[in-house]
Nucleic acid binder design. Structure first.
Lengths: 229, 229
DNA sequence: TAGTGGTCTAGACCACGGC
DNA sequence: CCGTGGTCTAGACCACTAG
């Protein structure tokens, strides 16, 4: 066995880059490519499928495979686990529980999770530190029916973030990045003037059907989310 | 043929969610699963590989397959093509060339692209409109050696963004999201007060080896980037 | 060194969807 | 209709690596 699917993947990318296969153009079908390259159709399929998943190719039965008009349109993003993000930079990680109280969710967030006004929720605010410096400020609502055991959990050692990740078999959710000015609370804890432009993340998590948690995280000034293409 | 790899994919996810396969636990090997489920090993492999790519499983030869400690840590992000993002919402798309001049890149951006001070670059600023309202403001430097033909291109019909996508066989780059306060220029064109917290994107593009372009895009207030998990 | 995932093959059937 | 990609199978060899 000489030809691997990675070989074909690479070869195809070169043809795309060299415009041998131009954007929008139809490329040979799998059977022809297999014959040309001297391998089985399954191997070609594996390579072309990978390219399609990354947005380089568009494939349709009967219509064949075309080079995407705007190639490379998908990227993978590793969802940040705060502790790991910090420790990966060689910094120490710490968190401090700022407040924890039973509190109804504001209507907007409640609607996002699809909860009724009767749902019992707990609000937990946590500050995360990297090498002692403010790193992120988390404002979280937890739906107690969706996270059994949470109410009984002390959050000294394990922060809410990690507890939920480890104890909630969640299936889906949304995550938004947006810019948000620092309010008095963020300014105080992140050590920046009010009104500073901060990167924020809003995340809603559902455990198959029930809402579990909504969290809004403000990152310290200068924070970036990087995608490698 | 009764069992598809999607069936196995679904079944495995259910076992993970039900904690039948708990985080960190070793799951049966491919051969055993194939026997249990009554299909070939290749089909099992296809399903488990997909789960590993999405971060649910961690696989290592000889060590076997384990459920990830923090499942579901990867998401796919479709890189936004401005025109398509706007038109997908049913809005009209327009762009307006604000300025275009031969101008040296500031040192910081130049270093990011790995260019020398002698490199000839052109700065292009473009405003994008959705239904006539400001949508995004793009500030772009183009390395002319990396984008042959760009200098001769009028940017009335086709904006710099689209021309580069269609004419530059690029292979890699980085993309950062960050928060940035509106300066006088952004405030004027996006129609917001100076200092408003804006979501910004910075992107560096390399055509295999040569730097092509660096672009900083400020989005109108309220803009979000959404990831589906 | 032995077990596990990674991959290739050759052949087959099928679903989709242009034409 | 019928070509194209999507997928399954059974068997095989190999690469990696934990023990």
């Amino acid at each position: 066995m000489a030809i691997t699917w990675q070989d074909i993947h690479k070869e195809a990318l070169e043809r795309i880059h060299s415009r041998d296969w131009a954007p929008g153009a139809l490329i040979p079908n799998e059977a022809d490519l297999a014959a040309e390259l001297g391998c089985s159709r399954a191997t070609v399929n594996r390579a072309l499928r990978a390219l399609a998943e990354d947005g380089w190719l568009e494939r349709r039965r009967k219509a064949g495979t075309r080079v995407a008009m705007a190639p490379q349109r998908r990227a993978r993003l590793a969802i940040p686990i705060l502790r790991e993000a910090v420790e990966a930079r060689g910094q120490s990680f710490a968190h401090s529980l700022l407040s924890r109280e039973t509190e109804a969710m504001p209507p907007l967030e409640r609607a996002l999770l699809g909860l009724s006004a009767e749902a019992v929720t707990q609000r937990v605010r946590t500050l995360f530190l990297a090498d002692g410096q403010p790193y992120a400020l988390e404002d979280r609502w937890v739906h107690l029916d969706g996270a059994p055991g949470f109410a009984a959990q002390e959050l000294k050692e394990v922060c809410a973030n990690e507890w939920l990740v480890q104890h909630t078999p969640f299936a889906r959710g949304t995550m938004d990045y947006l810019a948000s000015p620092a309010g008095p609370f963020e300014a105080r804890h992140l050590g920046c003037p009010e009104g500073t432009a901060l990167l924020a993340m809003e995340r809603a998590t559902f455990s198959p059907d029930t809402a579990v948690t909504f969290v809004r995280t403000h990152f310290a000034p200068g924070h970036r989310v990087r995608l490698e293409l």
